[in-house]
């Protein structure tokens, strides 16, 4: 039975905002993601964590229709991303901070997106203000620092004022000030009731931000649950290391 969130989103039968069901993605001989199944509950911040090469980005690319799963499926709001009508107004995604044309200004890059998604151009100034980039709106992106590019990516994701945000390594390359800014920013978004799925291998950065945890290791799910269930009084880093060591010792075991 589908349910409605406060923002009017139709959820899948499980009530999950995002669901992965037996998702596998194989590149030639290597399985990047192996039989991955988990749900993301609406209105919560879920951390998708794992070391580099764990399959986090591949899983998110399959979720967003950028890569075709070898088997299984991933759905958002009960549908495949490509089936959603006007997806940018419901889902915002940051997958790569280089996803903008360096020769264009920040404003021009966002205007390209508003045109494609049928979003009013007035949103461009609003989201640039939201990520503190108003002063750089008419500067070419190739002159931006990595932190500014990350913020511009977030601005792009927020153009449609989406109820779900999917962020892949949003803190990559950020300095401590940038990471602190990002943490506060994610909290603000969560307070507004948005569902956020954020991937990272920087555990300290996520520790105080997330509600739920999903841990991937070598393409396989090794743990999923609330932060309290997973950490059991330890730090997130300690819990992660213990779980990955256990997974290395028993490579056949997935877990939840």
């Amino acid at each position: 039975m589908a349910t409605q969130t406060e923002q009017g989103a139709t959820l899948g039968n499980s009530g999950a905002a995002i669901s992965f069901v037996k998702l596998t993605k194989q590149y030639r001989t290597q399985k990047a993601v192996n039989d991955l199944s988990f749900d993301v509950a609406p209105g919560r911040i879920t951390g998708l964590i794992g070391p580099n090469g764990a399959g986090k980005s591949t899983a998110l690319r399959c979720l967003l229709g950028l890569a075709t799963p070898t088997s299984g499926e991933a759905k958002i709001l009960g549908a495949h991303y490509s089936e959603l009508h006007n997806p940018m107004s419901r889902i915002g995604a940051v997958l790569d901070s280089r996803a903008f044309n360096g020769g264009l200004t920040a404003r021009q890059n966002l205007l390209v997106l508003t045109a494609a998604a049928g979003i009013d151009d007035s949103r461009v100034a609003e989201v640039l203000a939201q990520v503190d980039l108003t002063a750089a709106a008419n500067k070419r992106v190739k002159g931006f620092s990595l932190g500014m590019k990350q913020r511009l990516s977030l601005a792009g994701a927020l153009l449609g004022n989406p109820e779900i945000l999917i962020l892949d390594e949003p803190a990559n390359g950020l300095d401590p000030i940038g990471i602190a800014w990002l943490r506060g920013f994610l909290r603000e978004l969560a307070v507004e009731g948005r569902t956020i799925l954020v991937s990272s291998h920087q555990l300290a950065e996520l520790e105080h931000t997330i509600d739920d945890v999903v841990i991937l290791h070598q393409g396989t799910l090794i743990a999923a649950g609330t932060k309290a269930e997973i950490t059991q009084g330890r730090s997130l880093e300690e819990a992660f290391l213990a779980l990955t060591l256990a997974a290395n010792a028993n490579p056949g075991l997935g877990g939840n």
């Binding site: 997806p87 996803a99 997106l113």
Partner: peptide, 15 residues
Amino acid sequence: AKGTAIATFLAAPKR
């Protein structure tokens, strides 16, 4: 070349 394909196909996923 510019890496904008991701943003393009996220904004308009019907290829």
